[in-house]
Design a binder for these strands. Structure first.
Length: 402
RNA sequence: GGAGGGGUGCCGGAGUGGUUAAUCGGAGCAGUCUGUAAAAUUGCCGCCCGUUGGGCUUCGUAGGUUCGAAUCCUACCCCCUCCA
């Protein structure tokens, strides 16, 4: 059994625990805790940023605690106020169902399914009447809700805040009441909502939950938080090669943070990395390769990690051809001396390798298209059967004459 | 109900009758360099074509004025602030 105070359970991957001392006592008491984790079914993909918290959940599950996963089918209709998109179309039930499915497939890559209870918000919110809603709302004041940082920012800068959005924190808080959560999990950006849960539980005569905040992981751009809408994320269900590439393109400055939050590499070793980086006795690239392997091994297994590394070395470092190149059939208009004359534009467009003809023209003009290692400047080419076309940095196409 | 301000490309944000497919910044893409890091540097960044050029469609929506509109007029829709 993990030593609660001496391991890194309460230090690594933890931003803040409220109330910390009480939480420690609770852990020591040997009671099985109910760990609340919510998810928004409008964005079903889980990325490394989410994984930080999920890994923590897993760790606690191993100590015998239970995860209550809440499918936010009602809050999804409102839309997360921290999101930029003002109004999101309401998801249909079947969309939510499908998203939840996808989400859980990914969720249980990290979290233990057997120690998880899945609850839907609709279990309790479907029964709400206007009366219930009003009574819930009457427990809080506008000033209280406006105290939330992003609300007050938006209010000050004259951006709209819908009343429905203001309801969002209340619904999330009520979830804690509904499932009698003893601990809520969330990123530090969830601070307001989680604390409101504490308050509401107290008002409704329950023991207020403790809150376990996990740090926000920086995205691949190195500055903003990892998020799907910003496009700076590494999804845990992405193919190994994609993950490897994305990890390698991370800014060096993120290295130790990533080791700490997304891998099980021991603290001592990470401390060593940090020293080596400071002293410049190690090539950050090598550490990054290690990081990529660690991450991919977690989500795909060691074999895939090795393969992804091989592929990376081959394609991007040695600039050779990848092992597997997707084949596409092309119809040639004529043949001369074993060379087929054909236009690759329609196929590239159809396969989505380029978004438009204009884009392809641009790429051609900029020298981003190669046929068997030689730059070409027109989409009408003379190719062999089996020639390889490279479009941009990462698209490879094997030409098969049909 | 009243007064005022505003809706421009992925985002921010100029532009108030013609040389504007629309200044600039960010993001993105591509070339060189390289460790698919950073920094640097160059180009692209609505769509289509016979591509040193031509065409089409864009500035909340729908009409109108004009040789010509993102820019003027009318109606409508949406957003923000203040007063009640």
């Amino acid at each position: 059994m993990t030593d609660i105070e001496h391991g890194n359970l309460l230090s690594r991957g933890v931003a803040e625990i409220i109330v910390e001392q009480e939480f420690i006592q609770l852990l020591k008491s040997g009671r099985s805790l109910r760990l609340k984790e919510g998810f928004d079914p409008s964005a079903p993909d889980i990325h490394l940023g989410h994984a930080v918290g999920l890994r923590k959940l897993r760790q606690l599950q191993e100590l015998g605690h239970k995860v209550i996963l809440i499918v936010g089918d009602w809050t999804a209709r409102i839309g997360d106020p921290s999101g930029q998109s003002a109004t999101r179309p309401m998801l249909s039930e079947s969309e939510i169902e499908a998203n939840a499915q996808t989400y859980m497939e990914q969720f249980f890559k990290v979290v233990d399914r057997d120690r998880t209870e899945i609850r839907w918000q609709s279990e309790w919110f479907d029964k709400f009447t206007l009366d219930t809603v009003i009574r819930l709302m009457s427990k809080f004041t506008v000033a209280q809700i406006l105290a939330r940082e992003d609300f007050s920012n938006r209010y000050r800068s004259g951006n709209p805040i819908s009343l429905a959005e203001m309801l969002y924190p209340l619904l999330q808080a009520y979830d804690s009441v509904a499932i009698e959560a003893s601990v809520e999990f969330g990123g530090t950006d969830q601070k307001f909502n989680c604390l409101l849960g504490r308050e509401l539980q107290q008002i409704m005569g329950q023991t207020p939950q403790h809150v376990f905040f996990t740090p926000i992981l920086a995205g691949t751009d190195g500055t903003q938080k990892m998020s799907k809408s910003l496009g700076n994320y590494i999804g845990i269900a992405e193919p190994p090669e994609e993950m490897y590439g994305k990890v390698m393109s991370l800014p060096d400055s993120l290295l130790t943070q990533y080791f700490e939050l997304t891998t099980d590499v021991p603290d001592e070793e990470i401390a060593q990395f940090r020293e080596q980086l400071n002293a410049q006795t190690v090539n950050p690239m090598d550490l990054k390769k290690r990081l990529a392997r660690e991450i991919i091994t977690q989500f795909h297994g060691k074999q895939d990690a090795d393969k992804a590394e091989e592929n990376f070395t081959r394609v991007f470092q040695k600039r050779e051809l990848p092992e597997d190149i997707p084949e596409y059939g092309f119809a040639a208009s004529s043949i001369q001396d074993g060379l087929y004359h054909l236009d690759v534009a329609p196929t590239l467009l159809r396969e989505g390798i380029v978004q438009s003809n204009s884009e392809l023209k641009r790429l051609l003009a900029q020298g981003a298209v190669e046929l068997d290692g030689k730059k070409v400047n027109t989409s009408a080419i003379n190719a062999r059967d089996g020639s390889v076309l490279k479009v941009g940095k990462r698209h490879f196409v094997r030409i098969v004459i049909k």
